[in-house]
Write a protein that binds this DNA or RNA. Sequence first.
DNA 1: CTTGACACAGAACGAATGTTCGGGTATATA
DNA 2: TATATACCCGAACATTCGTTCTGTGTCAAG
Lengths: 231, 231
Amino acid sequence: MMVRKSKGLSERHISVLKFLVKYGHENGRPPSIREIGDAANISSTSVVNYYLEQLDKMGYIERDSRVSRGLRLTDKINEVVEMITDLIRVPILGRIVASEPVPVPSSDFNYYDADSTVEIAASLLPEPEKNKQLFALEVQGDSMIDAMVNEGDFVIMKPINNAEVRNGDMVAVWLPNKDETTLKYFYKEKDGYRLQPANPTMQPIFINKEEPLDIKGKVVMVIRRLDTVEV
Amino acid sequence: MMVRKSKGLSERHISVLKFLVKYGHENGRPPSIREIGDAANISSTSVVNYYLEQLDKMGYIERDSRVSRGLRLTDKINEVVEMITDLIRVPILGRIVASEPVPVPSSDFNYYDADSTVEIAASLLPEPEKNKQLFALEVQGDSMIDAMVNEGDFVIMKPINNAEVRNGDMVAVWLPNKDETTLKYFYKEKDGYRLQPANPTMQPIFINKEEPLDIKGKVVMVIRRLDTVEV
DNA sequence: CTTGACACAGAACGAATGTTCGGGTATATA
DNA sequence: TATATACCCGAACATTCGTTCTGTGTCAAG
């Protein structure tokens, strides 16, 4: 039998909320009661309704009577977002500094220290990025300030090479001629490449076709931890 | 009778798309066929279906057969966003510079030059801000750089006074003691106020309770025009 | 042991909703 | 004039869907 919790959200509440988030994300509309039942292994529509009433009273959703798919998640789900979001653990491979090449995942070996990971919500990632081999780099110093990225931030990257890059991607680039790593928006142009800083007050770098340029990865996310109290 | 357009979107297509955007924004779910009919003055569900089929073929929406509210807007609506979004014309009252007080709308007179306006999509504004007396200021120089706002940007503001400001608002403040206008996040603290720059690398300003401080308006939007080609 | 709250199933009902079909009108084209 | 096409209506139909009602089993408090 199911374990009964005295207060708060039971497993069923959580699995319903999870499904509401997932379904809405995938379909752009709320699910029907029967769809919720299928997903949460509830065989009776009345029981689904029973749980939806509770979630309504608890303030997690709002319902519209007699309207198909008439429910809406409220801001309160943010309070339990850890319970309902699927987290992806991304290994922190090292640091990113202007003066050094960025570490990249080794293809043949897959050992990562369990401690050095960051967790990111899968729902925040674009679909194609989800099950890729993502990795994280901690930003050291303020040398990435022209990418609006600061000391202590984590840059989540997807490994891609020079052939896979597309215009407008923010990429980590190693410039052998300058011995420099940089985070820039990438644009291919007539006679070479333009690397555009995210900070609009700063000037782009132009790279000739002949110059070497080594794209290490595409930035899919930047995380700035704010749990430390700021004055 | 209705004017027939040979190609592209007719008035009905547009009014349907408009309603899809509006309804989805307000209710968090797509409308039913009959709801679309009511909004677009189409009396027959079959005619609504007829238009939805066309919008589907044209790529503006995707449909799921036999599913209530089974439709979804695609990215292609962005191509016709000017046609389907309601625009609000906001008067440009002048410039904002660090060394001068900001212009504010005069309450007794309401004449604005028709040329000096910016148009913003109503859908991008929070609901309560929509029908307020908004005004725009063009940013001159780079003195607002610590608010991540640059030369040429437009700052859309809602006039509010010292009593209406709430913690976390980004506000335009005139500091008589310094003869300075600044854009900062506002926070009330024990013994005064903290004005926090949007740029995290810059330091906040602390204002004592006794010091004068004149809040001119709340920033509701910043517009950076990118239609001019950048090199 | 009785009682009542809780969690659940199943069925039935009616309203909401998508689909389909026959028919109608205006405009343009051959 | 004949014909095709786009646009539109109303009605009927079949699902989908939300709602409601009856009943069952568990468990803790009295």
